[in-house]
Amino acid sequence: MKNIFSLNVISGILNTMIALATPYLYAAIGEVFAQTAGVVNLGVDGIMLLSAFAAFYVALVTGNLWLGLLAAAVVGLLMGLLMSFVSVSLKAEQGVSGIGLYMLGLGLSSLLFKVMIGTVKTIEGFKPVELPLLSAIPFLGPILFRNNILVYAAFLLVPIAWFVLEKTTFGLKVKSVGQNPAAADSLGINVDRIRYVSVCIGAVLAGLAGASLSISLTNLFQDNLTAGMGFIAVALVYFGGWSPVGVLGGALLFSVVNSFQLWMQVLGVNIPSGVAVMLPYLLTIVALCVTVNRVRQPAALNKPFERGES
């Protein structure tokens, strides 16, 4: 117990936190785009699975990780188009279409894995890239600046997403479509098109989240590789109050508690492992209860838009 706060342990906790947070960052920031435009995409987990498989398969066959990444993005885009078609054009109940997308991704990824690969294999994933100078900073340097490219990109995504949503006309349109689609429509904004684009941005990012699992974090593919991470990512969007920075906070909190509980187990702290594993979920709820959370959700969230209604 006494050595749980040693430097070695703290740096270990932070290292694992960053690795674990990466897929959540991609997926949850992607979901921020979709939800800000008014579409709840519960199918993130399914997109992640199918893209994780695509990335792994392409990387395995071609030996090129970048092609794998591209494949993940393309698969994400296709799944995003499917989700948009059903949820935006056909105005489906989003909670249900998302569950359908999840099941499709879960089933299809396992099916393709079985037919095209057949057994668990590993590949050489993205290697850590040391940033010169920065990685030499004592203590924090090795934690923050000795990661692979997908990790850096995930953290860079936070300011980029913030900028796009807050400082560009496109971001404004996304928000207006999620707040008051009828008004946006009367201003000449094509509501459906903005929603398509937002859902697809979200889906491509979910695809990258899948790739970050299969070709950077675990370097393999296995049935149900995500184990429900996509759902946690959706929850983190609510935690972060639809802001990329808030999502970053949520992802880091969830991941730091998760890596903390692993360290507690490794160091032999006397706590049942079931309770330890529960901690990240429990603390996420508790954290949201104690921090005053008065962010209003996008007014048209989960509501399909039809001209002439309202």
């Binding site: 499917l82 059903v86 056909l90 105005k91 249900v96 279409s97 359908g100 997308l101």
Partner: peptide, 11 residues
């Protein structure tokens, strides 16, 4: 999954 997607779309 496909069934769920298409049924929700058919509404």
């Amino acid at each position: 999954g496909l069934i769920v997607l298409f049924v929700s779309g058919a509404a």
